[in-house]
Amino acid sequence: MAAAHGVMGDAPVRSTRHFLHSETLRGYFLVSPALAALIFTLAAPLTLLVLYSLWTQNDLTLDTNPSLAQYERVFGTDAYRVLFLRSLGISSLVTLLTVAMAYPMAYFVAFKVKRAKFLWLIALTVPFWTSYLLRVFAWKIILGYNGVINSGLISLGLISDPFEFLLYNPTAVVVTLAHAFAAFAILPIYVSLEKIDRSLLEAAADLGDGPVSRFFRITLPLSVPGVIGAAVLIFVPTTGDYVTPALVGGTDGLMIANMVQVQFARVNNWPLGAALSIASMGAVAFVACMTIVMARFAVRRIR
């Protein structure tokens, strides 16, 4: 019968066809334009950034012999060290503050809001989509010497002279950043809370837990991934933020990104600017990883 021959003869042919039309290959084919764009606009620039950080600027000429001179300068100069520590300190504070403030809000939407969840989420995310520059600018006019708070308090007769401590200091930076990154904290925490199977809480209640122990034994541990996600999403970009310290930070509130901008725009020492950015990203990655590891450990201990 021809059938048997057909089966034997077709088998190898079919497997080549499968290879060419393979699902995996089609998938790669479809993502390749996006990947190419990302390689050109993200991977290549970052590679060049690393290269630049290994070069040296001598007045007007660029010395392309690789060396770690820039990094020695970055880590050996007190002024830079202060900027690094301040950046990490400010963004740690911002992260803590934002997550702590966002948690009850996310909890409220996930557990207490019954009907208008969609509207609440839109309300909480819309400010995040509006111009970052304008939001920071709003805080500048709120906190300014002749700003909204001071002029408001004076016209109410509560104070006679404006407060000077509102604007141009690290606190102003912290408040402004906490406002700007609120949505980054709410969404991941909300998602992890929303995912919690409500029957787990009923089971805990059935086994004798009250509302408070239910929260600490079930809800909080299960929302840890969301909290960690939120913390990373805030900590990483805020450490390298430029606009907020430049507008509301004053001289005491400047951060590492402002120094990077100075190196690129004014001093024209690109290698040093590159080394500063890479060092700051390295520091951020290190702190973030350490915190995550410690948080995981702490959670395991609590359980």
Binding site: L46, P237, G240, Y242, V260, W270, S277
Partner: peptide, 12 residues
């Protein structure tokens, strides 16, 4: 990645 790093590396 902080916007400033994206900005300067694209400039490079």
């Amino acid at each position: 990645i902080p916007d400033i790093v994206l900005g300067i590396s694209l400039l490079i």
